[in-house]
Amino acid sequence: MSSASGRRTSDARDRDSAGRARNARPRDGLGRPLPYGADGVERQPEGVVRGPEQTVAEAQALLDAGKPFHAHEVFEDAWKSGPERERALWRGLAQLAVGLTHAARGNTTGGARLLRRGAGAVEEWAAAERAPYGLDVVGLVGWARRLADDVEGGGRPVDAAERAPRLR
């Protein structure tokens, strides 16, 4: 239910088809909620099972478009649906995307922390004889640590598209 001001009343909650609470407010390109009725960016569907190649390609396209929040959702799907042995990799990539999201939103502390955490998780894959799915693990780790240093040193939001990593 909505009030005359366009706000949701406390007894009405957005729910998905399974009845779980979901915030249906539109979002901007960095995943920030916008007022109901505003034009937002199309959200990534949740729970999509993609192959690794499709995951990397979709995430790269979203990163290039300055939508790291949405890329994080693609990585999160892979983390939740992929083989157990790869979950740490996909979770680390999701952390890198969320770190970039926070850095672009101006949250320098959270952005730097998540970039470093994601770099640490992804770095474990650098020791592999061959990086999985052609990922440039060493390059991603260096990108994340440089961006974390820049964000902490500059204290200003970054342009997400301009600072997007190359996954391969």
Rank of each mutant, 00 (worst) to 15 (best):
H70E: 11
R116W: 14
A126E: 13
A97T: 06
G134V: 12
R50D: 01
G111Q: 01
S10V: 13
L147W: 06
Q54Y: 00
A103Q: 08
L34M: 02
L34V: 02
A71G: 10
L62V: 04
E124R: 15
A12R: 08
G118K: 08
D28E: 06
R130Y: 04
G51T: 14
R13M: 02
V151S: 02
A88F: 09
S81F: 14
R163W: 11
G6A: 03
R145T: 15
R85A: 15
L34I: 03
V158R: 04
R87M: 04
W79K: 09
R8L: 12
A4F: 09
S10F: 10
V141L: 07
A97Y: 06
A131H: 03
E162I: 00
K67H: 13
D11P: 01
D64P: 00
E76K: 11
G51K: 09
L100K: 04
T108E: 15
R145D: 13
Y133I: 05
G134K: 10
D64N: 08
D136L: 05
A71E: 08
L147D: 05
E53S: 06
V48T: 09
R116T: 13
V56C: 04
G153A: 13
A4P: 10
D39S: 10
P52T: 04
A38V: 00
R166Y: 02
L147Y: 03
G82P: 04
L114A: 06
V49D: 10
E86A: 12
Q95C: 04
L93D: 07
R146A: 12
W79R: 15
G29K: 01
R91Y: 09
R145H: 03
L89N: 02
D16R: 08
E123M: 05
H102K: 14
R166T: 11
G134F: 14
P83T: 10
A88Q: 11
A119V: 06
G155R: 08
D28S: 03
V158S: 07
R145V: 14
S5A: 15
D28Y: 03
G37N: 06
A104Y: 11
R32I: 00
A59T: 08
F75M: 07
Q54N: 01
E76D: 14
A18T: 14
A119L: 01
V49L: 13
A71P: 11
A112T: 12
D64I: 01
V151P: 02
D39T: 13
A121H: 14
R145N: 09
N107M: 06
D150T: 15
G153K: 03
V141Q: 06
A65Q: 08
D77E: 10
T109H: 12
S10M: 09
Y36V: 05
G106R: 12
F75G: 08
S5T: 14
K67F: 00
G66Y: 04
H70N: 07
S17F: 12
N23M: 01
Y133E: 15
G99M: 03
R146N: 11
R8C: 01
L89R: 04
G40Q: 00
L34S: 01
T101I: 07
V56I: 15
P35Q: 10
L115E: 06
R22Y: 10
E84P: 05
R13K: 12
S5M: 08
F69A: 13
P132Y: 03
L100R: 09
R43I: 00
A38G: 01
R168V: 05
W90L: 08
